[in-house]
Design a protein around this nucleic acid. Sequence first.
DNA 1: TAGAACCTTGGAGTGCACTCCAAGCAAGCG
DNA 2: CGCTTGCTTGGAGTGCACTCCAAGGTTCTA
Lengths: 157, 157
Amino acid sequence: MESAPVPVLETVPAAPVDVCASGPRPHPRPSGQDRYTISEVAEYTGLTAHTLRWYERIGLMPHVDRSHTGQRRFSNRDLDWLTFVGKLRLTGMSVADMVRYAELVREGDHTFEERRQLLESTRRDVLARIAELQGTLAVLDYKIEFYAGAPAAPERS
Amino acid sequence: MESAPVPVLETVPAAPVDVCASGPRPHPRPSGQDRYTISEVAEYTGLTAHTLRWYERIGLMPHVDRSHTGQRRFSNRDLDWLTFVGKLRLTGMSVADMVRYAELVREGDHTFEERRQLLESTRRDVLARIAELQGTLAVLDYKIEFYAGAPAAPERS
DNA sequence: TAGAACCTTGGAGTGCACTCCAAGCAAGCG
DNA sequence: CGCTTGCTTGGAGTGCACTCCAAGGTTCTA
């Protein structure tokens, strides 16, 4: 009950700033020394290391760099991507659709229009979901008021 | 992409009316002749017959009446309950929590306070989720504008 | 009264999004 | 060097919320 339905990124403090690739938000390390281990990234994103590996396996990550012995070394760019993916996840977009988006990114600039359409469709879904939630708020408030006002009446639900 | 994440009740037209037990919304049949078959209820609620049987099995339905040969006959009251359950579902509440609520209803009037608390906790979750979604809208709009404005730039996501 | 369409059950299966496991190699510290 | 902690892999397991199945009984329409 108390938990969010989709535990993805631990929300950065509270601020309606758009956290996005090439945005002005600084990363823990300056560019050039940005070679994070999987557990550092796990802590930063709130995802588990398992999930990060799984994201890579299913094609949701743009090729992650490796150390000379084969361990993952994530870059600030990867962190940006994961932040954005976290936002997409919060919209309710399915993993399959996020993978589709990632493929479009890999395919290059000629997919800009398709990406925009995908995002606009997502935006419409989000607006619809907000409206839906506001509809449930009305019902919830009706009920809560009922329970608060009448501590013993014959209503059934 | 185009589908809602949680397909529950087919939303009644669009209207911010609170659709709730003892509310003023009329049912297909007048009280007294309200003995719907499972497929009628399936059509009304948008749930499948399978799901309606499953809801009953897990304790999410208040005892459904049966015909003399054992087939289910749902009442208007059952329809009201299912409408309300649909709203709870739309809030993102888990089936387990809805079953908990149904148990409280079965236990009688002395659980009013606990029910109110459950509903208020749900209400807080809904508000948080709305805020979260509005946060994603900001990111989405930023990206959409980017793709709309620059049909070929070196951004990576 | 025949036939189509609908209903019953317990239990098994599905799809999603993780989540974990075992066995073994890697990294950093005193 | 030894020790602890961390990282690697493919594949199997988990929990949720349905979703379907087989085999048989019921209800409705012609």
